[in-house]
Write a protein that binds this DNA or RNA. Sequence first.
DNA 1: GATTTTTTGATTTACGTACATCAAAATTGG
DNA 2: CCAATTTTGATGTACGTAAATCAAAAAATC
Lengths: 341, 341
Amino acid sequence: MRPTVHDIAAAAGVSLATVDRVLNQRPGVRHVTREKVETAIRELGYVRDVAAANLAKGRTYPLVFILPASDNSFMHGLNAEIRQAVLRSSAERTDIRTIEVPAFDPAALVSVLEELSRDKPCGIALVATDAPDVRAAVDRLVRERFPIVTLVSDLTGSLRHHYAGVDNIAAGRTAARLLGRFLGPRKGEIAVLAGSMLVRDHRERLEGFSAVMAEEFPGLAILPVLEGRDDPEIAHMLVADALARNAGIIGVYSLGAGNRGLIRALKEKAVDRMLTVIAHELTAHTRAALIDNTVDAILNQDAGHEVRSAIRVLKAKADGLAVIEAQERIRLDIFLKDNLP
Amino acid sequence: MRPTVHDIAAAAGVSLATVDRVLNQRPGVRHVTREKVETAIRELGYVRDVAAANLAKGRTYPLVFILPASDNSFMHGLNAEIRQAVLRSSAERTDIRTIEVPAFDPAALVSVLEELSRDKPCGIALVATDAPDVRAAVDRLVRERFPIVTLVSDLTGSLRHHYAGVDNIAAGRTAARLLGRFLGPRKGEIAVLAGSMLVRDHRERLEGFSAVMAEEFPGLAILPVLEGRDDPEIAHMLVADALARNAGIIGVYSLGAGNRGLIRALKEKAVDRMLTVIAHELTAHTRAALIDNTVDAILNQDAGHEVRSAIRVLKAKADGLAVIEAQERIRLDIFLKDNLP
DNA sequence: GATTTTTTGATTTACGTACATCAAAATTGG
DNA sequence: CCAATTTTGATGTACGTAAATCAAAAAATC
């Protein structure tokens, strides 16, 4: 049987009220008495029953999710997962609010973060835009003791407590190796389609991709990056154009969103060419393309896992509890047509 | 504010005691009254506060894990993860007991299962040995209302509530496609190292592997399966022998354990040969081999996820609650040297 | 209509913790 | 040593549910 407050009161030779004062760091306890209680807690191995405590406190976890107002499948999926979490909120005692901010707009994000300290959420998850101001705002909130996790896109060098997302450098490296190995001894050029080089995750994916390409696949040359703004139309135009003008392209790496346009371009211009294609994010479109062999592999991050992980971590931080690190690692999913979920 | 038992009592115009009788299916409630209460529950959207209920009941979840007494890295890892779960058991209100049974011994497993119904655990997780007797024993326990999940190895066609493990056919198919794509246009022979064809997961992996090889890579011929009994020594001997005798081998798929022996054989006999190798289970040995290019890809199932998932599912079933399906899907991890955790 | 049986209500205690109140004790300052 | 202050104890209520008891009311049986 795990020890209760009564047990530590008895063991420390004090009253329940005193134990309570120590446990909830209320004033009015002499130093020596506090130490007696703390010793008893340690020796009996007491851990507060969080369920009972939450019941007594009527505790809920007001959480805020800050997301960019981007109109692409991944963000829609992320939103959907947050809505799912909201449906579970009564059972999980959470109270989740989402705030949309303009994408790629550090100032807007910062002003939302500033306002946040007023309504005192017990945790904040944000898709970070990588800018010094944002970092400063996050660091300030962390110092004010708000639990903060970055979601999908990290804020390196900031004090955020946790990052719920994949390692994008590793993702880029993995894409490069897959592409290089799939192409085997063939030599040629590789087209890279990104959303924007202003976004940290895209930069990191490209960085990892380029590094492995340079180190290990000297026969493959990376063409200048096509920036499709995560927009299917722009992506279509850029890719169709590149394929038309450059007969040496034998591989494509799409590291952002807007894959619908990419896939259309591939079907129009490259049915007869032996192209090897690797794309990010599993959506209805990329899934279909994987199945019909237009795409060879899809790298994916599971938005549902990211959202649930962010919530678990924020709750744990709010309670001052430890998290199971291995459980919260967001993995890079690699899908071939054989292991689709 | 979510409704409480008091609210439904008021709404249904009955007393708290009656609500309690309905909620906990105690006798002594007229049919019409029961329906009034059930209507109120539905209309107010009442959901029992599991935390409060567990507190009141002093509920714990006695769980039993039944594992084969196999001496390989994967089973050691699985055991370690269960021990981790035991450390968390006071916070999670679980009470986990593990039982070891001789491997590949349906009769032993059945007799353990028979005895189990006596000490009334509230959930059972087992690494299933695929045999009709086992299936019958599991089905009987399910009919007696024990929540049961299979772990790592499934029992197809049984009534088990859930399977916490990967899709092994998909794993085999994935291995085949990776190997086939990595080898590109090369033609040659593929050696397959398995533990035993008596184990369902190994059979399924081979089945998936063979299917994709036959459909899509006609230039690659699968050699007769080497059965290494998941033993490093035997694996070493078999692989070394095969490599020595057959110069046409250009790829290896190791779908079981005992990879230590495989890796040694590869380093001794195949440094100069351009072998492409895919193995299962990420261990210290396979990780090192991936990094030094002895192995090209590792397929893995995360034992920690499997154990935690099994526990979550068993608890949910014991409480009659729903599980988050997407969260409980055990994914096939594909590791290249770039995305190692 | 009286009796038995079934159904329902009212009330209490408990789970482990939080939090508030008031009195009692111990400590400190003068 | 007395007063002021701080520290501690004792006690009660609350959170939402479970489970038990006993009395009261309603229904079924004869």
